[in-house]
Design a protein around this nucleic acid. Structure first.
Lengths: 158, 158
DNA sequence: TATTGTTATACTCTATAACTATA
DNA sequence: TATAGTTATAGAGTATAACAATA
């Protein structure tokens, strides 16, 4: 690979045959995720701030005081992975662990002032890069894409 | 997490606020990829056969005799990662490395007979699981989703 | 006994660097 | 000198198991 910038990542090389891959919706999702991840990194600048870590900050901001096990559940992480993700932001003075008076085993997770400021910044940067990701679609097409994606994500009604 | 089956993975817990995450197309792609990966695993049975490893088999099947560096480029892998992915299938008698008469440094990658049979099986299983992934969409909606996804993946025309 | 959170440990995946053999 | 492929090694990221404190 000669170019690490997202613009340089070619998704399909027309010189080769990809078999049935391009006809698989799941394969398209994976490719779209890769492009998302690439331009996410370009936009945020700091490669340490991954989509997962940003998600953690976003969820804490929207639900102050959650327990670590709850955060682990929401983000689909094991307890140790949640511990480390929280450590990441606490090291950077963006999150704090506060003792819970009612259950002294658990600790509520909160944004610090710096964390709130960081989140405010990131929300803007990331909303902008997300718009860039879909800039080739009209407003109607984007709304349609999102509603179709939502249905696929939620899965079949059993 | 109490249920590792794909059906048991709930994508959004209505008890919590996800901030701006659900409005980000990139976040939806990531969720859709996770669901794809989960039901891929369920469908294939063998957890060692990842989407990447299946992709390798598919590309080799469609382009017999490619060099390893070419495969690495197509799949977005480093050379060592390509070596290991090819090793994986060679160990299972599905791929073979054949010397290239014109350049004795390189080796062409080919499906073995067993590899062709394995690929034939996998293609069917995976096409079926892919259809399952989008079973809540009509044929027209699915076609629309795919064409929108294609455009997002290809990126802006610069 | 069960649960919250941390630490210890191991596994997978991927990368870069160093190496061999060719070109 | 440069390239194809392998091996050595290291760094993320994640998981399970064991542990301490508390319920």
């Amino acid at each position: 690979m000669t170019d690490k910038q997202s613009k340089g990542i070619r998704m399909f090389d027309p010189a080769f045959d990809y078999g049935q891959l391009p006809s698989l919706t799941g394969f398209l999702f994976r490719k779209a995720s890769l492009r998302t991840f690439a331009i996410f990194g370009d936009a945020v600048g700091d490669r340490a701030i991954t989509p997962l870590r940003y998600s953690l900050l976003e969820v804490v901001g929207a639900n102050p005081g959650l327990q670590q096990v709850q955060l682990a559940g929401i983000l689909g992480l094991s307890k140790p992975a949640a511990t480390l993700a929280i450590d990441f932001w606490q090291t950077r003075d963006c999150l704090s662990r506060r003792p819970d008076a009612r259950d002294r085993r658990s600790r509520g997770i909160y944004l610090t002032e710096a964390g709130q400021a960081r989140l405010d910044d990131l929300r803007i940067i990331i909303a902008r890069q997300d718009a860039q990701l879909t800039e080739m679609l009209s407003e109607d097409e984007l709304a349609l894409l999102k509603s179709l994606m939502q249905r696929v994500i939620e899965g079949p009604v059993l």
